[in-house]
Design a protein around this nucleic acid. Sequence first.
DNA 1: CATCGTATGTTTACAATGTCAACATACTTG
DNA 2: CAAGTATGTTGACATTGTAAACATACGATG
Lengths: 195, 195
Amino acid sequence: MEKTNYHHGSLKEEMIEKGLVLINNEGLKGFSLRKVAAMCGVSHTAPYKHFKNKEELMEAISDRVLQSFGECLREAVGKGKGSPFGMAEAGKAYVKFMLEHREYFRFIFFSECKVTVELKEGRFIYKSGNPFEVFDIAATKYLQQFIEDRQKINLFILSMWSIVHGISTLISNESFKYDGDYEALIERMLTLEVK
Amino acid sequence: MEKTNYHHGSLKEEMIEKGLVLINNEGLKGFSLRKVAAMCGVSHTAPYKHFKNKEELMEAISDRVLQSFGECLREAVGKGKGSPFGMAEAGKAYVKFMLEHREYFRFIFFSECKVTVELKEGRFIYKSGNPFEVFDIAATKYLQQFIEDRQKINLFILSMWSIVHGISTLISNESFKYDGDYEALIERMLTLEVK
DNA sequence: CATCGTATGTTTACAATGTCAACATACTTG
DNA sequence: CAAGTATGTTGACATTGTAAACATACGATG
């Protein structure tokens, strides 16, 4: 349908899609606005009609990744119905996403990061869709059956997030390497913690 | 002693020192080889006589940071003599270092990272001085008294590293914020986990 | 339907950065 | 002292982000 070539038609969307491809191929370091523009067959300043600057493009891409990240997590927790280890399921899904999409994981957390959670006056504050959400959900769904102390639950949630985010960060950063199956290792780590 | 100005005398060392200053002042994003060179009052290519490239300079700076990081950790674990919570002490020290040197922490882990640990054939492999070392030390010092299963100890060590690295990463990255005292929060998180 | 304003692209230019090559200076060692 | 080497400088270039000025096409309006 596009003959005229001058107006691209859906550059904003394609910038995001090609951006995802570039991240996959060249990682965080290789990512540049000009490369993405070139991949879209467009001049290097065209993107500025759709994004204020590079950071805004990166945020748009991050949002896209975070969306599918969130979907993976919600689905994983949805499966484990009533199991007391709903938290562990959430944690495993978190790490699994990183294992299957290392560059995406690095991108959302190692570049300008939009994932923000606040613990304020004893309550977690975050935007819906934030990957953290899955732990909060799992906690309300399972953990409250065993623990009533709200503060203790918060600590547990935060610990779970920390541990899975920690190991994910270490692995995706190549700071930690393992000669076995990562998922099995995580499984053991998490059930050890939950005991 | 330096009159002649042409030969700096100790540029390599000063590049590292001024690099640390720059990281403190402008963080990871503001760090550039040319800026550090300028801070040393030297042309922008002079550093290439001492460092192969920017990355090598960053590694030298990282090494310097890792050294003081390691000292903090070893000291912290050294203090808690015989306490079963030696691991928690190590963990608290890890996070404390991040809290007191956020930009350094970000630098060593978010740029070209030299911190590498391998779990191979049931044993941790890492270079001496690696911040991970403190957990291994604490484990041999305290944990072995309570747990004999080597694999379980490994999982515990890895979990401890993950949780403190995770929360450190989240905080230094501003992904997690808390309206109270961070150190107290960590304390509660770790003792909750150790239980 | 013609026109004009606006959305969307292009060209050109510039500054910051990493890096290389050619050259300059000073230290050191025989 | 002379020569060679270590250390600095100058100048150049490619890559990148970004801004300004200009070009084109789409769509609403008369």
